[in-house]
């Protein structure tokens, strides 16, 4: 019960002050990170209430999709199912986490309008809620990942520490993208549609369903400049026992730094206005 026992709110006092207040919001959200977790967990549980298998549906529908696409497209691309199913499974699961976090980010503040307009809860709490919700979903998908890795034997060659590091990069980047679209979507109601179009296009442009080596060398920029490709590669390659190019990490680290700087400064500027957007 020691939350918000002292509250001081003031008018604008210059850019530096706004940044400090934004940092304070971030700190407060981290102190109550369990609240974000409870909210996320509540979201997942309530989404599947009344269904017999509950959140396992996330796993099942993903499994069906992986099998279907893996078998059919393996034929289309004439690659062995043995290689292709793990590739597609990992691709769909981790790409889904990225796009899920971003797409659901559009609703982060809009959905929380009621709470934001009568409590002093930190805004970051709702950003973490969206991120955690997608991580909980990812937790369910990991069943598929494990099954595929074990069945096709690549669990022996997989490099788990490197994959875990890749996952951290993935979450770091997905989180700022999620927050960015959350702020902008609160202000402009067209943004969710735009965001969805972009993530849909990304699903096609990124080697989620198709092997990256099928692309002619002169089009390699599609891969090198595609942030989604690097995000995916950082996690998928080590799990398949492959190496990750150093420039992928460079790209992801740069993207995280620039992205968070951009998002945070936008947040510092709009923080006191967001509740009025809703």
């Amino acid at each position: 019960m020691d939350t918000a026992t002292h509250m001081l709110r003031t008018g604008r006092r210059g850019a530096l002050f706004e940044v400090q207040m934004a940092l304070r919001d971030l700190r407060a959200s981290l102190q109550r990170i369990d609240l974000a977790w409870s909210l996320a967990w509540h979201d997942v549980v309530s989404r599947y209430r009344g269904s017999i298998l509950g959140p396992l549906w996330i796993t099942i529908s993903m499994g069906v999709m992986v099998l279907g696409i893996g078998l059919l497209w393996g034929e289309v691309f004439r690659v062995s199912v043995h290689d292709f199913i793990p590739f597609v499974a990992l691709g769909i699961v981790f790409f889904g986490t990225v796009t899920g976090t971003i797409n659901e980010g559009c609703d982060t503040f809009v959905q929380a309008a009621g709470m934001l307009s009568q409590t002093s809860l930190p805004m970051f709490t709702f950003v973490w809620r969206t991120v955690f919700r997608n991580l909980i979903n990812l937790g369910h998908h990991l069943v598929i990942v494990l099954a595929v890795l074990v069945y096709f034997g690549s669990w022996r060659t997989a490099n788990y520490p490197v994959a875990a590091m890749g996952l951290i990069f993935l979450v770091l980047n997905a989180a700022w993208l999620s927050m960015l679209v959350a702020i902008v979507s609160a202000r402009f109601r067209d943004i969710p549609q735009i965001v969805q179009s972009i993530t849909q296009a990304a699903a096609i442009m990124t080697p989620v369903f198709w092997p990256p080596d099928r692309i002619p060398a002169r089009y390699h920029l599609i891969l090198d400049l595609n942030p989604f490709y690097h995000l995916l590669q950082a996690v998928r390659a080590p799990l398949m026992g492959l190496g990750v190019a150093p420039h992928t990490y460079l790209f992801l680290a740069g993207m995280a730094v620039v992205g968070w700087a951009l998002t945070f400064s936008l947040f510092a500027n709009t923080r006191r206005r967001i509740v009025h957007y809703l």
Binding site: L8, R9, R12, Q118, T119, R271, V275
Partner: peptide, 10 residues
């Protein structure tokens, strides 16, 4: 604490 003042303090 939901609305931030434009001027002054709370």
């Amino acid at each position: 604490g939901a609305y931030e003042p434009d001027e002054g303090t709370i």
